[in-house]
Design a protein around this nucleic acid. Structure first.
Lengths: 226, 226
DNA sequence: TATTTTAAAGGACAAATGTCATGTTTTTTA
DNA sequence: TAAAAAACATGACATTTGTCCTTTAAAATA
């Protein structure tokens, strides 16, 4: 982690994501731009929270570690995401690990300063509520899906949800990670991929998964993840 | 559902749960007391939301229905719980079913009136944020637990979490429902109960599960659910 | 380039879980 | 109280998933 002393860049991002819509006044002087490199950890489970962040560039991986050593990827974040909303009013310790997937830029504000300076800022509160609601909405959904459907359906859902209509192939950075994301083992993911390949629904090519039969995939996905 | 015209009772509950800590002024005239009987549905998935509720008496069951007909109990609610916080600022349709477990009393406020009258009420916003944070915190936790641990551990966790230190037996209203709550089948829950019984950890007696060896149960639960 | 490391693929077997069926017990209700 | 319905219990078998291991392919590095 490295602090970036670049007032102009900071202001660019404030402008780009219209952060002035949620925050105002003298809070800007407390904003610091931080750069996290690939693999660097931003939040660590069970730590006390020091900074509230806006992710303005790069991608983050959010996951939990379990006592049995297993790791569960909860989601990815891309700009504009916020970190620390859960801990903003309640004094929880951090409960998920956040790691930078590539070189990321975050605007950080000391959480106590933020609490103090926004304690009457209804715009910011509204922003926080919308963010929390969205996260809750998303996780409620994926949580029940994960529990009730076998990996085959969850994987199909995942594929459908990362496709954007036009694109018909998916870069998989790493199958082990993908297996974690789906809460399963690499072995099982492999079986499922083979199964879908045999059935002519997908094809694996280099590091890509190509969709052959989108309709069948859609059927398998049962409209999950939406 | 029946509206209860009892100003005094309503005021009792407002007093009992200190609702004046979160709301104030002329919103009280918009509060209605509703009574829901056992089995009655308060929120139905995909419906538009009309009322925001405070649960002041009784217990509620929160669950989702999946396309394959399976049902997943997300949690139980007891007073003081709130319904509609997720939909308060975002215009989502309702995404979980809420059903009364016994005869329940709820204070309901027309959601649009509430939105209008609390749009500058930072106390209420703070209350909502705390509630959303708590729900998110809880569900993140249980969600990863459900995915990563077998039913045996989840069931042990469940038992530990519903015990309150002194009590050593648990009323199970219904094993099918309990199986749903844990996201498994009745058959599998039964196997697990038999297994724990054989190992001398619990005993099933009438409609109760008695804890024999709390320490072993605690070990099995791995401190999950907290 | 040669060597080492990491990722990928899949066989073999065991554990966890689900579905279905059938019999028993308990509860509800006519 | 007798009949019907609901809850409970469990065997048999199939499916899903995990663990462990070996081989091969690809990528990173000395």
């Amino acid at each position: 982690m490295k602090r970036i002393y670049d007032e102009k860049l900071l202001n660019n991002y404030i402008e780009m994501f219209r952060i002035y819509n949620y925050l105002d006044g003298d809070i800007y002087e407390d904003m610091n731009l931080f750069k996290y490199e690939k693999g660097e950890v931003i939040y660590k489970e069970n730590d006390k929270i020091n900074y509230f962040y806006f992710l303005v560039k790069g991608r983050l991986k959010i996951y939990t570690l379990q006592e049995n050593g297993k790791k569960l990827l909860l989601r990815f974040n891309k700009p504009l995401a916020i970190l620390g909303d859960l801990e903003y009013l309640n004094n929880y310790t951090i409960k998920t690990n956040v790691e930078s997937l590539d070189s990321s830029l975050l605007i950080g504000i000391d959480i106590n300063v933020l609490r103090e300076k926004t304690k009457d800022n209804i715009k910011f509160y509204r922003f926080i509520i919308k963010n929390l609601s969205h996260k809750l909405y998303t996780i409620s959904n994926s949580s029940s899906i994960n529990l009730l459907y076998p990996v085959k359906n969850r994987f199909a859902s995942y594929l459908v949800s990362v496709l954007d209509g036009t694109k018909k192939e998916i870069m998989t950075s790493n199958y082990i990670e993908l297996a974690n994301l789906l809460g399963t083992s690499y072995r099982q993911l492999n079986r499922v991929i083979n199964d879908l390949t045999k059935k002519g629904i997908i094809i694996k090519e280099n590091k890509e998964i190509k969709i052959i039969d989108y309709n069948k995939l859609k059927t398998l996905s049962k409209g999950l993840y939406k």
